[in-house]
Design a protein around this nucleic acid. Structure first.
Lengths: 240, 240
DNA sequence: AGTCGTCTGTGCGTTGACGCGCTTAGGCGA
DNA sequence: TCGCCTAAGCGCGTCAACGCACAGACGACT
């Protein structure tokens, strides 16, 4: 995690949609506290139950929220990109969550001390409201993950997962091995191999050794269950 | 849904833990707006995407949050009892959610007009904070449901579900058919039949035609996955 | 060029859950 | 008391996903 000495510029900040949606006055107060940081793939930002010293506003990075079982298996409960922030427990009041936050796609985020976050949140302005609306959107995403885990096939879930990632990605390339994806989705690696091969045969994606490219979004959308669209629509409604 | 003419008394209000946790001053402001209502099993409080006119603070009732698929199948994403409230979208700012809220166990709740809810929430006092802490607890419950749906057997999930219900129940009796439970958990009715029979053989529960009694909580806890305890611990930490 | 580690593909047998159809049994009202 | 409705139990065959073991395949690094 490389920290640049300077605070974030306004141009950097508005790359994050949540920050782009606050008032000029609020943004002016936030800017000096926002530090650009670039974070590598696989970096653990929060550990389950651990004190969170910073909140993170992704600009180009994508962060995955995971629950890790006692036996080591894991499952993703949500994904955060430049549409939101990581660390909602800071302003919700719990300070910690029983989840791990890990970088799914390397890139930059803006980090801010928890204290500064709490201070601006308690002022109760547009920033406060935006944070809560984003939290509601995230709740919808988590809920739909629960439903999808229950009722849909690996193929459908992989499509949903790729679309959620693609929405938060600056390009069509996703650096991610099938093994990592299987940990996210909480399934076998071979299950992902099969599903990915089918998607490749259909011409929706192509990949070689951890380097995946999305070729046909429409195709993926047709292969996904309704869960993706429900989440997408709700994000647009709440944050659009 | 039977509405009594009078406002709620302080004694009624504090049966709901969330209301019990606010300041005297706040409670005094809330009381005139709180109306006791008794609601029968199966009543739909909110429909997916529908405007929410009231928020509900359960006292003895239990409400289930469900997502209904386009093809009619369904899955529970969370359950609310006297530990919280139904209608968080009101103060989170989205006004609606893509979920259905349905009464899982008949009983009473205190309902309050959305406008009154918003007004007290925006005052930003202890009530505001309690609502957010409760929302975080609910997020944990939903997250753990997602994980559990992915990784655990029907037997384990039934145990978890029974324990979550029991925690919110005034007695050990649960009026609920296996068919309804299967809709909640998003599995086949026969799956619940098998799991329930095993739990009955073990002496953990007994049931006849939609009338279930919990005989051995410890037994259920031993049959459940870690998901139940994670949620329980987090509720205690955030709201206890 | 050769070696090693990692990523991907494949082929088993196993299993938990599904879908369907049907039976048994309790409860209630006519 | 009879009949009906609904809840619960049972027995298939089917299937998606699992666990495991191993084989190619690509890239990086001597």
């Amino acid at each position: 995690m490389k920290v640049m000495a300077t605070s974030a510029t306004r141009e950097e900040a508005v790359q994050n949609h949540l920050l782009a949606g606050v008032s000029d006055e609020e943004l002016a107060r936030l800017l000096p506290n926002l530090q650009p940081v670039s974070i590598p793939l696989g970096k653990v930002i929060y550990e389950s139950g651990e004190r969170m010293d910073y909140v993170y506003f992704p600009t180009t990075a994508i962060i995955s929220l995971l629950y890790i079982m006692e036996n080591g298996s894991s499952a993703e409960i949500g994904v955060v990109g430049n549409d939101g922030l990581v660390g909602i427990a800071i302003f919700m009041g719990g300070d910690t969550t029983p989840n791990r936050a890990v970088v799914q796609s390397a890139g930059t985020t803006l980090k801010m001390l928890s204290a500064a976050m709490k201070e601006e949140f308690t002022r109760g302005g547009r920033f406060h409201n935006q944070c809560l609306r984003y939290t509601q959107a995230l709740i919808t995403q988590i809920s739909q993950t629960a439903v999808c885990n229950r009722l849909h096939s690996i193929d459908q879930q992989l499509c949903r997962w790729l679309l959620l990632s693609h929405d938060r990605l600056p390009s069509d390339r996703l650096i991610m091995t099938q093994d990592l994806i299987s940990n996210m989705l909480g399934v076998r690696r071979e299950g992902i191999t099969h599903a990915a091969k089918r998607l490749q045969s259909a011409g929706y994606i192509s990949y070689v050794r951890g380097d995946m490219t999305i070729l046909n979004r429409k195709g993926l959308e047709s292969g996904a269950c309704e869960c993706y669209q429900v989440v997408r629509t709700e994000y647009d409604r709440l944050l659009g």
